[in-house]
Amino acid sequence: MMEEKRISNRDWEKLSAYLDGQLSNKDLAKLKARLNQEPELRKALHEISKTRAAVRSLPLVHAPRNFTLKPEMVGLQTRTPRLYPVFRLASVLASILFIIIVLGDALKPGSPPPIERALPAMAPNQIVGEVQEKSAVKESQPLEIATNMPGMETEVEMPETPVPEEELTFVQEVPLRDAIEESGEIQSSPRLPNQVATEEETGTSGSKFVSGGNGVITQTTEMLTATLTFEDKEEEKAAITSTITETKAPEPTSTPLLESPEEVHEKVVAPLGIREIKIALLLVAFLAGVTAFWLRRRR
């Protein structure tokens, strides 16, 4: 303790700086002179030198782990691409639509194959006509083509007529003729028996009624009924073909024949089949999903 008390703080600083080589030349010369003369100062230098060596002997330790930074650690927000939610939503919606269509298709009882089923709301102008098939009608009986109301299509009554089945899409039994006959006087037009009412005649005149003096309804035959009697097969084919041509669907479907007169099927030929819609939805769902996934991974 006596040694320490004899060595001032300034001497300790000089000894420390001497060990580190931080003394000026002047201070270094003075200290060396004192060290030669003062054993206590030499001893102090020796002790502080060993202390310094002990501290310097501390080993370097390895970092226990990597301290590399992640964007969220430094407040960097990873920006999601703007299109990501669009593709994600498109994929989800397409998938939902696809599931709905598949389930609806599978759960509909007695439904025909999807490709052949009609979509009523898709092609209203493709309703081609009404065909009433009566098994009791003989070949010699006249073919009856009638209109019910303005805009409605032609009613065709024909026995065993080789009309293409695909082109007959709407069948309805309308007892219009019987109703008119019961109602009173009907003035028939002098149309020839073999004459077929054209689309223009039936469409423009439609159900035009003329009120008589005693309430008797007169209906012209151009407006209501055209009765045809086909004498031979050739005329029948030509007449039916001319009637149906204008209303023919662009893509004929293979609709099965109606099994009974009471059974009514409404069919509209879809411009795009269910199968194509399913494929398109699947493609959209898959591609949009893959794109969304890629956009998310890319950020």
């Binding site: 703080n9 000894l15 420390s16 502080i48 060993k50 202390t51 060596a53 002990a54």
Partner: peptide, 28 residues
Amino acid sequence: KSRLARARRGMRQCLQQFWELLPEAFRL
């Protein structure tokens, strides 16, 4: 410079407790 000198003095005094542990080169 001042802090370092004082720190070394303090280390020297502290290590005297463990002088038996210190290798010869570090014994004070």
